[in-house]
Design a protein around this nucleic acid. Structure first.
Lengths: 207, 207
DNA sequence: TTGGATTACTGAACACTGTTCAGTAAGTTT
DNA sequence: AAACTTACTGAACAGTGTTCAGTAATCCAA
């Protein structure tokens, strides 16, 4: 069935084309300006064509989100290389924050925006929100090591993960959405305060 | 100038009418369904009329946000009544999380949504993001007391405030935006984990 | 009291958004 | 060559925030 295969390939190729254009627009002009119509114009197809490959915008955003999580996972593997679990935890935390501050639009997509989370139809038991699982598991494994070696104050690794994640996400998302303006500091001071806050937090969770 | 006064009153009255309808719609049908057109329909005026009282939707959302922060401030004053600074800190943290989980649309407006933060035109030095200041200062004062009585590990009250805020906001916003699905727990389990995480965190920041 | 200025308000339009669907044109199969 | 299938699109629908010319009511001075 060579023809069917080629058709299949072409279908995937088209999806890749759409995703690539979307991702480029996301990074170049931001989330707000990335509409179905704009993407269609970029790849020189009609807007309706996109709907032959994606059921709706959410599905497209979900794929884009998956790609963003792959990027973050790469960053983790690249930067969190220490043998010491606690040091590795620090590397993860700092890589996460840096990623969030450097790519706010991608961060939005992954952790803030409402849309692409709708994959929650657990009627039949399967599917249900796979995006970000590798990143989360990466964190979980390091935490497990730290707990095993009695380096962490937490007993439960889920609570530990939730605590660490909430802290770094809290810092990034408050800053990305400009809520730290209420603290009345300059931009540099805020980034500095964020760094200090992470260090203090990492000190506290150590045994 | 009685007439000018009456005009002034009527102008404020109209603003109040718009705000009241907006707030009701926010709480009843959520952020997504609260459009200028829907608000106009509710108060039985043309959409264009709203633009005689608010320059754009952001300005309206800003006022709405201010009102939401007043609500949170009331909750703080109501629930954070302990004499002990650390106990009071705990009451604040838990009140914050409860508020966020119970009124996700208001929480959105206050801490997540992009729009109404645009008040950052510090050209002349004035204005610049007043919303939420009372809430933040309330937290700051309690932290100062705790630091003065050497109950907190933090030395800098700004870092302390940032740390605590980031933690509670991280927990609420990840949950409100369904990102905790990746942890593979039921809804009850998640809320339980959030509670435990706060308790653990409050234990850690104690000297 | 009347006429002109001021004010409050609105209908209709503009430029967007996501999405759908009938219709066309090209490719494939028989 | 005819019939069927697939890939694609133009135009439309319903919604959004926003603007603006035009109307109707109110106010003020002559």
């Amino acid at each position: 069935m060579g023809i069917a295969d080629r058709k299949e390939r072409e279908k995937l190729e088209m999806k890749r084309l759409i995703m690539e254009a979307s991702m480029r627009m996301f990074l170049e002009v931001g989330y707000e300006k990335t509409s179905i119509r704009n993407i269609a114009e970029k790849i020189e197809y009609s807007p309706a064509t996109i709907y032959l490959y994606y059921k709706d915008k959410d599905e497209l955003l979900y794929d884009l989100q998956a790609q963003a999580f792959e990027q973050l996972f790469e960053v983790f593997k690249e930067k969190a290389t220490s043998r010491s679990p606690m040091k590795k935890l620090e590397q993860i935390a700092k890589a996460y924050v840096q990623f969030g501050l450097e790519k706010p639009d991608l961060y939005d997509l992954m952790f803030i925006i409402r849309s692409p989370m709708k994959k929650l139809e657990r009627e039949d038991g399967s599917e249900a929100w796979d995006n970000g699982a590798s990143c989360f598991n990466f964190l979980l494994e390091v935490i497990q090591q730290a707990i095993d070696q009695k380096l962490l104050k937490f007993k439960d690794r889920s609570v530990a993960a939730l605590s660490i994640w909430a802290m770094v996400h809290g810092l990034v998302s408050l800053n990305v959405r400009c809520r730290l303006k209420v603290m009345d500091m300059e931009e540099d001071g805020i980034v500095g305060a964020i760094d200090v806050t992470i260090d203090e937090y990492l000190k506290m969770i150590k045994i």
